[in-house]
């Protein structure tokens, strides 16, 4: 039987087994989901742990997995601020007792880490399971999710070093979440009939006697968003302000280097920043490393195609075989030339 008719047949079987819904008002539209289909997609875990698959993982197992799969972006201790805000930090033993993160009340937290915010442990299990590692979502087994979560909780001193997290004890651990009592739904912005909390009246005449300037943009920040002249129309009642030198005289902004687009299209930018390390080294660091290496160009083309690890660390680059030879060559040339942005 041809592959095609096999597929057709499989399709018919599903349709026949399913039949049309008895009281559907749209005969012929849609079909019942099979139990395996629902199982494949219905992966959510609720705060009452409905949906949580059975399994377990220890802090020790978590450390190992974390080093291999999470450290590159979140740091060995979940503290990294490089790819995302820190996952860990800012919570205390007292918070674990009270369920209210004190830093919010003392207002002494420079940043809000994940553990300072999240009230519900299910949230972390559900999210890591569906979305992490960021570059390979849904690749962890349930036991691996338990393990990395156990390690994360240990970093927050919520569980001890010899702890094994499982579906059996997760509800107990929930009772130690530092911000578990920190949420409120008492506000008017969820319910369809919710009432606003802030009130103004539409005064029309002599509403104020004095106008105080509260805040304005510091001069040094005026060009932080590029040349505003290039971000406005060239006709009409207004023009954009010239906020940086050079691009004056109506010249268009310099076009971005074509490799900028190519790098994004080819998926490199998920793991490499031009100047910042993500999972892989920054492109500028690569250029630095191979500055005096004449054979680097052809060598790196080969390495990108084949993927690999060990040169920069433990993290691996998957084979980039989906990128054409010409594109890979162009990218490497550009990287070795210091990745100019235009």
């Amino acid at each position: 039987m041809s592959r095609f008719s096999e597929l057709l047949l499989a399709g018919c079987l599903i349709a026949a087994a399913a039949g049309a819904s008895a009281d559907s008002s749209f005969p012929g539209v849609g079909r019942p989901a099979t139990p395996s289909e629902v199982k494949a997609w219905d992966i959510d875990v609720r705060p009452d742990f409905k949906g949580l698959p059975p399994g377990k993982g220890s802090v020790d197992q978590g450390i190992e997995l974390w080093e291999a799969k999470c450290t590159a972006c979140h740091g060995s201790f979940g503290e990294s601020n490089e790819v995302f805000t820190p996952l860990v930090g800012g919570t205390t033993k007292e918070d674990i007792e009270t369920g209210r993160v004190g830093a919010y009340i003392r207002q002494d937290a420079p940043q809000r880490s994940t553990l300072m915010k999240v009230p519900t442990l299910s949230t972390l299990w559900d999210y890591i399971n569906r979305a992490m590692p960021w570059n390979a979502p849904k690749s962890l087994s349930p036991d691996e999710v338990y393990a990395v979560l156990a390690y994360l909780l240990h970093l927050g001193e919520i569980v001890p070093a010899d702890f094994t997290l499982s579906d059996k004890n997760i509800a107990e651990v929930q009772k130690r979440m530092p911000n578990r009592n920190g949420m409120t739904t008492k506000h008017g912005m969820w319910d369809i009939k919710g009432k606003p909390d802030v009130k103004n009246v539409a005064c029309m005449k002599n509403c104020k006697t004095q106008i105080t300037m509260g805040s304005s943009l510091p001069d040094y920040a005026r060009d932080a968003h590029g040349n505003l002249a290039d971000q406005n129309r060239v006709i009409g009642a207004v023009r954009g302000q010239q906020t940086s030198e050079g691009a004056g005289g109506g010249a268009a902004a310099p076009a971005p280097h074509p490799a900028m687009d190519l790098m994004k299209k080819s998926g490199c930018s998920g793991c490499h920043g031009i100047a910042s390390k993500i999972l892989g080294p920054s492109f500028r660091d690569i250029a630095k490393r191979y500055k005096d290496d004449k054979g680097a160009e052809s060598q790196l083309i080969g390495r990108v195609k084949a993927g690999g690890s060990g040169t920069w660390g433990d993290a691996a680059m998957p084979p980039q075989a989906h990128v054409s030879d010409a594109d890979t060559a162009a990218l490497i040339k550009w990287i070795l030339s210091g990745s100019p942005e235009n």
């Binding site: 959510d44 609720r46 705060p47 009452d48 409905k50 209210r100 993160v101 919010y104 009340i105 809000r112 994940t114 915010k117 999240v118 009230p119 519900t120 299910s122 949230t123 972390l124 559900d126 999210y127 979305a131 911000n179 920190g182 949420m183 409120t184 739904t185 008492k186 506000h187 008017g188 912005m189 969820w190 919710g194």
Partner: peptide
């Protein structure tokens, strides 16, 4: 029951002066 997903339990929560976060602020 609501699900308290990552983007309703860690983000998209509004920090109030008393240190609580408003959850499920949507409108």
């Amino acid at each position: 029951q609501p699900w308290a997903t990552k983007d309703e339990a860690v983000h998209y929560i509004d920090l109030m002066p008393d240190g609580t976060h408003r959850q499920y602020t949507s409108i």
